[in-house]
Design a protein around this nucleic acid. Structure first.
Lengths: 241, 241
DNA sequence: ATGCGCTTGTGCGCTCGATCACAGGTCACC
DNA sequence: GGTGACCTGTGATCGAGCGCACAAGCGCAT
């Protein structure tokens, strides 16, 4: 592929991060499906709690706010076999989704004990989802030793030891933008391969490391755009009286 | 359901929410582009601070971590005209992106003063991005009057008045899952048309209301999947020494 | 036992976004 | 003034995901 010296507009390579290839063992679940599985899971847990044992794609679709065909196609990726004319077994479905997503507990380390870091450390949803926060590190030595919901803050210089001692497998970056790249680098150096970045900064990771981004300000700006468009187009009609 | 006799798999209608149609006045910027504009903006601000006055699509692409062609196509949606052979004028580009995204300040109201709500209220990135948090409401009366970074908490029953008094245009839902739908309903009733939901729940809104979702637990579960896949495929080689 | 209604699983066409490649325009330098 | 290096804007191609529609399967009522 254009090996020689041509390539007019070649741009930067950019480590592909669409779908992790890894050793394709069992299931290459598409990203879009992956993002919906947790939503299905929550609905299924509720149903299980209510004693419901069977669910149709349509019911699940309503609860999850998506299309029924999409639900079926999503579940087909799990090798989940529902019964035609009946539906899916709630418990079995829960087990299958749970199995696909990793099942057991996955410990998390959070970098940055500022507003956001502290809030995330205390966020019940993580623990409930099987992601206990087992470590919090920060670059501020004055925070060292302070406790957040049972976890004491460690200095970032000791990250390697903390990650090893706690068995952390997922890293969350909740630092200011200017510290994000270093935080990520340190997490990678400590052996982590999956990182969630909350800092409003573009960071790069070596190939093989999964990096996802949650950009709070950007989300608001997107909403702001629609709000802006709406008000702009409504303004002319506003002054009626 | 299944009222009529036809429509084999008709499923629910689901209020379209792909691209807001509104009165298509000036620019139907695609979602994907929209999500990148704030990233470009941050890079451009940095460049402007450094006194750089011109930028090529390639440079901007490097800073934003994307493809140069994508940058050009994105910017073309703004009617942004760079000079061939030269690049884009940084200041002008900033003005154009800012204009497209809404420009001026857009006040935000946050529902839910728990861990997450408080953290978001204090999040500098919002203010910096032009989204000052002007109101925080909660259903817990014991929090009433307490201050968070200059804003005092109001009871949710007074939401209408607070929204009107503060001129809030964007709503953020940071409640527990079970309270999310009601929070959204109240925001809509108060006249807001753009809502960002942090609660891990599926909520529905009437047509014409923009609803975006940030699902923290889901993000972790997606990472957990990749981590799971990776470790599963590496496990066989693990037991050596 | 048999028919009928309900539900799954999936092939198909469509839309959207990403990337490539190139023609057209601009500037600097000689 | 001419030439070459550089950069933008965009048409074309490609792939992913979505929704539809339907054939195949299952269970209940009779």
């Amino acid at each position: 592929m254009t090996a020689g010296g041509s390539t007019p507009d070649r741009d930067l390579p950019i480590a592909e991060m669409g779908v992790v290839q890894s050793a394709g063992s069992s299931s290459p679940i598409p990203e879009a499906t992956l993002a919906r599985l947790p939503v299905y899971m929550r609905s299924l847990v509720e149903m299980a709690d209510e004693g419901i044992s069977t669910v149709s794609s349509r019911q699940l679709a309503d609860l999850a706010g998506v299309n029924a065909a999409k639900v079926r196609k999503d579940l087909s990726h799990l090798g989940a076999h529902g019964k035609r004319g009946v539906g899916y077994d709630v418990d079995r479905l829960l087990a299958e989704i749970g199995g696909a997503l990793g099942g057991s507990l996955t410990p998390v380390v959070i970098v940055g004990a500022g507003n956001l870091g502290r809030a995330l450390s205390r966020y019940d949803g993580f623990m409930a989802g099987g992601f206990p926060v087992v470590a919090v590190v920060d670059s501020d030595r004055s925070l060292e030793g302070r406790e957040i919901s049972g976890v004491s803050i460690t200095h970032v210089d000791h990250m390697d030891g903390v990650v090893r001692a706690t068995g952390s497998r997922l890293g969350i970056v909740a630092t200011p933008a200017h510290a994000a790249q270093e935080a990520v680098d340190r997490l990678v150096a400590a052996g982590l391969r999956s990182i969630l970045n909350f800092a409003p900064a573009v960071v790069s990771v070596p190939p093989g490391v999964q990096l996802r981004k949650v950009d709070l300000a950007t989300e608001l700006q997107i909403l702001g755009y629609y709000e802006h468009v709406r008000t702009s187009s409504e303004a002319p009609e506003q002054a009626v009286g």
